[in-house]
């Protein structure tokens, strides 16, 4: 239906030739933009509903007060996935968890998954690669948090936290404070949730349009095989190369997915592309500088190193199984 609309608009009304590069690129751009905005709006609304009932304070309370026998990593990662992520909140979240007496590894599980899995990434993946790849991405984003958190806990890294954070940690008390539930009926809440969802769409709209425009431009113009030449499957080093190139870079999911789509269309294996994306979204120099407020460089190094290694492994795994 959207494709028909895009065809009608671009080829019928604007009058571009469907066989030309320009026509194809512009059509692709319109089709993708409309589809992704619709998906993003629905997924944001859905996550907004979940979030209204499971705010992060409630999660912290739950993690602190229950014995979970290892499931706390999964829970933290799952909550990282559904909590709307703003990079400015990563430090307060980190401190909030540490202060509540939540183990460092569990905190890391949350911190790893949070930027990787969010409404924007899910909407873009669904719109671009379909359900199967989206599920694989979702599951591996959560798995990365669980495994990463679990391993990092084993390293006993508390001593590498910044001194003031260590102090908070030693003074952490099992908070018994109840989270305040907002007892508002769903009917009254829903308009706010929809409005917030639209706010999310509006907030990333520009990035999405720029990302899709870049994607569309490359779609129409960059010759097949251009990327394949550099990041092809046969080369054993393509996954680590893609990941290591991506770690310092930062772009949010909105900007990066359309570019990944072109990579894949041009012959870069899916695994290499997803690994590239995870490294761009999950780890970056801006994040490292922000974490510096609460961690020593050594801890940031161990954290980044471990996650980089896992992302590379995931990339190889995908290339074998996808």
């Amino acid at each position: 239906m959207i494709q028909k609309f895009a065809d009608w608009l671009i080829y019928g009304i604007v009058g571009l030739n469907p066989d030309s590069h320009l026509g194809e690129a512009v059509n692709f751009f319109f089709y993708d933009t409309i589809k992704i905005i619709i998906l993003l709006f629905f997924i944001s609304t859905l996550m907004g509903i979940v979030n209204a009932y499971l705010p992060v304070d409630r999660l912290r309370h739950f993690l602190v007060t229950r014995k979970l026998y290892g499931f706390q990593y999964l829970l933290a990662a799952l909550f990282g996935a559904i909590t709307p992520f703003c990079s400015c909140s990563s430090i307060p979240l980190f401190i909030g968890f540490v202060k509540g007496g939540i183990p460092l590894g569990v905190t890391f599980a949350f911190l790893i998954t949070s930027p990787l899995v969010n409404e924007v990434a899910v909407a873009l993946f669904l719109g671009t690669f379909g359900l199967k790849v989206t599920l694989i991405y979702l599951i591996s984003g959560i798995l990365l948090g669980v495994l990463g958190g679990w391993i990092l806990e084993k390293f006993r890294l508390e001593k590498y936290l910044s001194p003031w954070v260590r102090q908070i940690q030693t003074q952490s008390e099992q908070e018994t404070e109840e989270w305040q539930t907002e007892k508002i009926a769903f009917k009254q809440r829903f308009p706010t949730i929809v409005k917030d969802a639209w706010g999310i769409v509006r907030g990333v709209l520009l990035y999405i349009i720029i990302g899709i425009a870049i994607g569309a431009a490359m779609h129409g113009y960059v010759p097949e095989g251009f990327f394949e030449h550099y990041l092809a499957a046969e080369k054993w080093y393509s996954v680590p190369l893609a990941v290591i190139l991506a770690v310092p870079m930062y772009a949010n999911a909105a900007g990066i997915v359309p570019v990944i789509q072109v990579f894949v269309a041009k012959g870069v294996p899916m695994g290499t592309a997803i690994a590239f994306m995870m490294a761009v979204v999950g780890l970056s120099i801006p994040e490292a500088t922000m974490l510096k407020k609460v961690m020593t460089w050594k801890l940031i190094g161990i954290f980044f190193g471990t996650i980089t290694l896992f992302i590379i492994l995931l990339g190889y795994l995908y290339n074998i199984f996808l």
Partner: peptide
Amino acid sequence: DMMNIMSYNVMIL
């Protein structure tokens, strides 16, 4: 200031 912000127990800004 992060220390002051944390004293209010707010995790999401």
